[in-house]
Design a protein around this nucleic acid. Structure first.
Length: 579
DNA sequence: GCCGTTTTCGGCCCGACTGTTTTCAGTCG
């Protein structure tokens, strides 16, 4: 976890450098880029220090490598301490207010001696801000709005929430005859696990009516910006939505630009410069004449840059540009690849529907088989099944299977991993199940070493096929457990135990970074909805998107297999007599 | 501060909107 601490420190350095006047903006960017990559590059930092491979991390050169080593060995960064003495901490707070940048913050600090948001509010009320050059009434109101926003402490939305909201707005605009094409863009299109604001792109030959309709969606006082081609609103719930309208000939270029990420864009634009091209949201332009050579579609834009089209989920500057230039973008997992629904609960424990209802809904979705995985006996809160109850459930599944042929219900269980690493049913019971899914549901606070041992012991159990929601995190609610995921991934690969990508919007566990790490260790995966009510089946797209962000191909995801090969895989490490 | 199938030095992505200004700086994405 050291890399996350360090990434925060690098971001902090960048914050402070931004406030130092005359600082080289590219140095600031270098720190930001390194911070970003530290958060997303798999692998243990101490290990990399020992191996001398720090400079293999993109954006880390000799200087930053030395700083990383300093932090690992001393726990601090001398450079940051020096910077803190030069730049007042409270300036960082001030630029955190939307509408206040480095210049304004400096002005407030120097001329009005403002040291906190409270100071700023007071001065605003006294109307003293207008004494400053370039600050008048509008700017005052703008800053006041920014303060409200910071104080409301609005968090990022879950991907699932943002998708629903975004599609809603799409629906409201789509019906306009002036709208020729419309797409979600930004982090939402890249399917990041949490979303700050919603970006929408439209192509049209007449932007005005589109803009007019759009700004009507704003809540009271919610129009942030309203221009010819670009507007920005805040909905009644306080969600910021940006709309950009372009000509159809620019739609592809605009979609690339508006989808980002920022780092991906910078990457392809510098690539373009080296080829004598300019890329902006209107197209790709060649040489002095500025002749447009692409722009209509995304594929065109990438093609003239010598690249294959890059799926939005990969556009994070994690090597996708290089891969696309070499034509080595993998064929990523798609929803339609999945043949089995792997992790499902019924009324027998904490699900809302009978096994039959669940099975029929899953069959209706086009799956060939499902794994029924109600909870094991220790999970009292979910009504975990005693051994006799489990046996009764097995009989029920046998009966149902006769009726549902050729659809198959595989009999499974989501078995608790007890705090000492044993499983909640004895092996003699596990041996009678088709598929065993192991999961931590208790003692979340164990220290890292104990938790790692505990999980690995379960992974190595010959009857365990899948480790469910490996980190146990709930976005915005519960931190991930402390565990050495690299070791867990290696153990899972060695033991042929699959790691789950859980589709619950709050879970998305494993996440994209962990998936890339686990995949490097050779692990295999399942994508599963963990369905408790039928509506949960719709979450599949979230898990598939997360898998795609982790660069997963169908061959790495076991529930792309048909029932028989899946079952063979799930049972292959069992002792021969119990397969 | 990083980085190189043009470069180990000299580059480093590009544009919209706002507000206050009268040609542009600041902020944002």
């Amino acid at each position: 976890m050291k890399q996350f601490e360090l990434a925060d420190l690098f971001d902090r350095i960048a914050d402070l450098l931004e406030l130092k006047s005359g600082e080289n903006p590219f140095r600031i960017r270098a720190y930001r880029r390194a911070a970003l990559n530290l958060r997303s590059v798999p692998g243990d930092l101490e290990e990399k220090v020992r191996a001398g491979s720090l400079e293999k991390i993109p954006g880390v050169g000799a200087d930053l490598a030395q700083k990383i080593e300093e932090f690992i060995s001393t726990g601090r960064l001398e450079y940051l301490e020096r910077l803190k003495k030069q730049v007042p901490e409270c300036l960082v707070t001030l630029v955190g207010i939307p509408g206040v940048g480095p210049k304004t913050a400096r002005l407030l600090y120097d001329r009005l001696k403002i040291r906190s948001i409270e100071d700023l509010e007071r001065v605003l009320k006294q109307g003293k801000l207008r004494s400053l050059p370039g600050l008048r009434e509008k700017k005052e109101q703008n800053i006041l709005r920014g303060i409200r926003l910071v104080q409301s402490g609005r968090d990022r939305m879950l991907l699932g929430t943002a998708l629903a909201l975004g599609r809603n707005i799409l629906g409201a605009l789509k019906s306009l005859p002036e709208v020729l094409e419309i797409e979600l863009a930004g982090s939402l299109r890249r399917r990041q696990e949490t979303i700050g604001d919603i970006d929408i792109l439209v192509s049209s030959r007449n932007a005005r009516p589109v803009m007019e309709r759009f700004i009507k969606l704003a809540g009271p006082g919610g129009i942030q910006a309203h221009g010819e081609t670009k507007s920005s609103i805040r909905t009644g719930q306080g969600i910021q939505v940006d709309l950009r309208v372009v000509e159809p000939d620019s739609f592809g270029a605009a979609l690339v630009y508006f989808t980002g990420s920022k780092e991906h864009n910078i990457r392809i634009r510098s690539l373009a410069v080296r080829m004598g091209l300019t890329v902006n949201e209107y197209g790709v332009f060649k040489g002095k004449s500025q002749k447009r050579v692409a722009g209509r579609s995304e594929a065109d834009v990438y093609r003239v840059l010598g690249m294959k089209w890059v799926p939005p989920e990969l556009r994070e500057d994690h090597g996708e540009v290089e891969a696309a230039r070499k034509g080595r973008i993998p064929k990523l997992l798609e929803e339609g690849d999945l043949k089995g629904s792997i992790h499902n609960h019924s009324k027998w424990t904490d699900g809302a529907h009978s096994i039959e209802e669940v099975a029929k809904a899953i069959r209706q979705k086009g799956y060939r088989y499902m794994v029924l995985s109600d909870h094991s006996r220790s999970l009292r809160i979910a009504g975990g099944l005693s051994i006799p109850e489990l046996e009764k459930e097995m009989r029920e599944v046998r009966r149902l299977n006769q009726r549902l042929v050729p659809f198959r219900i595989l009999m499974g269980s989501e078995v608790d991993i007890l705090p000492d690493g044993r499983l909640d049913y004895p092996d003699s019971v596990l041996a009678r199940l088709d598929v065993v899914i192991a999961a931590v549901h208790s003692a979340f606070k164990q220290p890292r070493a104990a938790m790692t041992r505990r999980i690995i012991q379960a992974i190595r159990n010959p009857y365990v096929s899948i480790l469910a929601h490996p980190t146990g995190r709930l976005l915005g609610e519960r931190e991930p457990v402390e565990v050495d995921l690299e070791e867990v991934s290696r153990a899972a690969a060695a033991a042929s135990t699959a790691l789950e990508i859980n589709c619950y919007p709050q879970r998305l566990d494993l996440n994209d970074v962990h998936i890339r790490q686990a995949r490097e260790a050779g692990a295999r995966f399942v994508v599963s909805t963990d369905t408790h009510v039928l509506a949960n089946l719709e979450n599949l797209e979230l898990g598939v998107a997360t898998a795609r962000r982790g660069w997963l191909a169908p061959s790495e995801v076991l529930n792309t297999l048909q029932a028989e090969p899946f079952l063979a895989w799930a049972r292959k490490k069992r002792p021969a007599r119990s397969r």
